[in-house]
């Protein structure tokens, strides 16, 4: 898409270059306004919109039975609740464990101001808004550590609102999850 934007920019500028050189010519309404202004623009936009809709449908959260974790944002920290392999919930601060290679959904909440849950390498962001629960679907293909951060300004400590997402191999869950004491079940 960035390439396309670059190409169209270059193309329009080249057209401008052509227009400002040379002697006066007959400028046709049909060519410039109808052809370029309407037909060309609408075609590009139509293709772009259709593809974006299609991608959007695929990545939208569906609330089906995938791994479900909770993210509670508050100034200036993230508290996560994630299922241990045995099924009981484990609470962590600023670290989120998810199994790699399968989609998971995050329930995002805030207890004070607006924050935004974002793991740049995994995909887009979703806001944490007081009084609302937002669902966000992501997937980490490979095990590893992924940096995450809030993407909505929240006050003086904003830049400290970072967390780490650890995607683990489902066959080999991390000790932090296995050794955690059993708590009450996820709601």
């Amino acid at each position: 898409m960035a390439t396309g934007a670059g190409l169209i920019t270059a193309f329009v500028l080249a057209m401008l270059w052509g227009a400002i050189r040379g002697a006066p010519r007959k400028a046709s309404f049909r060519v410039w306004i109808v052809g370029w202004g309407l037909v060309f623009t609408m075609t590009v936009l139509g293709v772009l919109l259709a593809s974006a809709l299609w991608t959007g449908e695929r990545i939208i959260a569906r609330g089906d039975s995938v791994v479900r974790v909770q993210a509670h944002a508050s100034r200036y920290k993230w508290d996560f609740v994630q299922p241990a392999p045995g099924g009981w919930p484990v609470t962590t601060r600023n670290v989120l464990y998810v199994p790699a290679g399968q989609p998971f959904e995050v329930e995002i909440r805030s207890s004070d101001v607006i924050h935004s849950f974002w793991v740049p390498r995994l995909g887009g962001k979703m806001d944490a808004i007081p009084g609302h629960v937002n669902l966000h679907r992501l997937q980490a293909d490979r095990p590893g550590e992924y940096a995450g951060q809030s993407a909505e300004f929240s006050g003086p400590g904003y830049r400290k609102m970072r967390f780490t997402l650890i995607a683990y191999d489902p066959a080999n869950p991390p000790s932090a999850l296995i050794d955690a004491p059993a708590e009450k079940a996820l709601p």
Binding site: L16, A23, P24, A27, W32, I33, G37, T41, L45, A52
Partner: peptide, 26 residues
């Protein structure tokens, strides 16, 4: 999203009208 993209159409019409004007003049 569609409305946001659609708003580019009138803008594009103006851009091409300006380029066309320059094309037709000196």
């Amino acid at each position: 999203s569609a409305a946001s993209a659609l708003v580019a159409v009138p803008t594009a019409v103006q851009i091409f009208a300006w380029i066309g004007t320059m094309y037709g003049g000196q």
